[in-house]
Amino acid sequence: MTQEGFNPHILGFFCHWCCYAAADAAGVARYQYPPNVRVIRVMCTGRIDFRFILEGFRCGADGVFTGG
C-alpha cells in the first residue's frame, strides 16, 4: 500500500564512530540517498535504550533506524 507523496519521518540514531562516519563518507563521495532521515548522533550504539526508540515513535516518527 505505497502512498503517493508520502514522505516518512525517520529518526536515525547513528554511532559517532561507525554509521555517522559512514554517512559522512557517503556525503563526501557524493552518493545519493533519501533525505528522510533526521540524525541524532550518539557516541556509541550501546548508549541507546529502548526508551529512546519508544520516545521517537511517540513524537511521531514513522520509523526509527539505529546504525552502529
Binding site: W17, C18, C19, A21, A22, A23, A25, A26, V28, A29, Y31, Q32, Y33, I53, F57, D62, G63, V64, F65, T66, G67, G68
Partner: peptide
C-alpha cells in the same frame, strides 16, 4: 518500523 543495522566508518556505499 524499527531497524538496527551495522555499517563501519569505511562503508559509505553500504550505508547508502
Amino acid at each position: 518500523r524499527m531497524a538496527l543495522e551495522w555499517a563501519s566508518a569505511a562503508e559509505g556505499p553500504r550505508f547508502v
